[in-house]
């Protein structure tokens, strides 16, 4: 690539991303401050004396001014130390590091399967526009898109794990310290739910985008030059159709981060979804803050990647960068 403009673009967008994260950190911090109950009381329980609650508040640093607390938290977060869980009294990374990794693995697995799959379906439906395949796939997509994940998930459990066939585990049992990659059979259903949730959106966008490009003058021109259909599709249509598709992929990967919470609950998967829910219940503020920041960072990264990919496949945008 060697194009200095592209690097400048990346640099600029990274800075913007960091600025976004900074704003998110302020919002997250402020929001946790506004939570109605006192974490010290939540930890010690309703019967604790006022004295012990105050002592704990002091120990956790909750008696200091909010700005000071924020600054302290932010500087430690930037230096790679998200702090200690109020509840477990353990460094956060020790406490939920595994879970972050587990969720990330699920997310990557779902992305790696859903993206190529939906592009293929989209491209094929576009090419077979208005044929039986196109109509059937369109309707199936629409049905899938209109079902919430937990419905799809329960349906899959009924089908593959319980009533119809018993071929796949209905819940995941992954001990801490054990990677989910050692239990791939247990990954199938959670991944399938996420994939089925995302494929309709990406495939429909890909189909629409490729059809639009297919009607373009340059695709007609390619046919009139005698290009074989495969070349027309993969060389002339697809590269020009990718821009909008990248954006929808980014939205879906970001959506996985949210969908993960439902799916994890459904399959009892040890990921951040469970951790987040538990932390909110016990007002484990450092853990909540950390997890929200992780999700925010994921959103920013994914969107940055999509914008960059769009620029790279669009010469008109790329050559404008100087």
């Amino acid at each position: 690539m060697g194009n200095i403009g592209v690097w400048k673009f990346i640099g600029r967008r990274l800075l913007l991303g960091l600025a976004t994260l900074l704003v998110v950190s302020i919002v997250v911090f402020a929001a946790t401050q506004l939570l109605p109950s006192d974490p010290a009381r939540a930890i010690l329980g309703r019967d604790a004396t006022e004295q012990s609650v105050n002592a704990l508040r002091e120990e956790l640093g909750l008696d200091r001014p909010a700005v000071e607390q924020y600054w302290d938290w932010l500087t430690r977060l930037v230096s790679g130390d998200p702090g200690e869980s109020f509840n477990a009294r353990l460094p956060i990374m020790d406490y939920i590091g595994d879970r972050v990794l587990n969720s990330l693995f699920l997310l990557v697995l779902a992305s790696v399967i859903s993206i190529p799959l939906s592009l293929l379906i989209g491209a094929y439906s576009a090419r077979k526009r208005d044929t039986a395949f196109d109509h059937v796939s369109s309707n199936v997509m629409l049905a899938l898109a209109s079902l919430p994940e937990f419905v799809i998930g329960m349906f899959l459990v009924v089908l593959f794990s319980t009533i119809v066939w018993q071929v796949l585990p209905a819940v995941t049992v992954i001990a801490s310290g054990e990677g989910p990659w050692n239990h791939l059979d247990q990954m199938i259903l959670p991944t399938a739910v996420l994939v089925l949730g995302a494929v309709p959106y990406i495939a429909r966008t890909a189909r629409a985008s490729i059809i639009e490009v297919n009607e373009s003058d340059y695709v007609e021109m390619a046919r009139l030059k005698g290009a074989p259909e495969e070349v027309v599709l993969w060389r002339h249509a697809v590269p020009n159709a990718l821009g909008p598709v990248f954006q929808v992929i980014a939205l879906n990967v970001a959506y996985f981060a949210g969908g993960v919470i439902v799916v994890e609950f459904l399959f009892n998967y040890p990921g951040i979804g469970g951790a987040l829910a538990a932390s909110v219940r016990v007002r484990d503020i450092p853990v909540i803050q950390f997890l929200v920041m992780v999700l925010a960072a994921l959103y920013v990264t994914v969107n940055l990647a999509a914008d960059l990919a769009t620029v790279l496949v669009t010469p008109r945008l790329r050559t404008r960068l100087k």
């Binding site: 340059y218 021109m221 390619a222 009139l224 290009a227 002339h236 590269p239 010469p315």
Partner: peptide
């Protein structure tokens, strides 16, 4: 037909700004 197009008979489009592939 594909073999004939572009070799036996070729086409010059009306609007080259849309008939050339912008990504190539």
């Amino acid at each position: 037909l594909r073999e004939a197009r572009g070799k036996l008979v070729s086409y010059v489009p009306q609007d080259p700004s849309t008939a050339l592939n912008p990504a190539m």
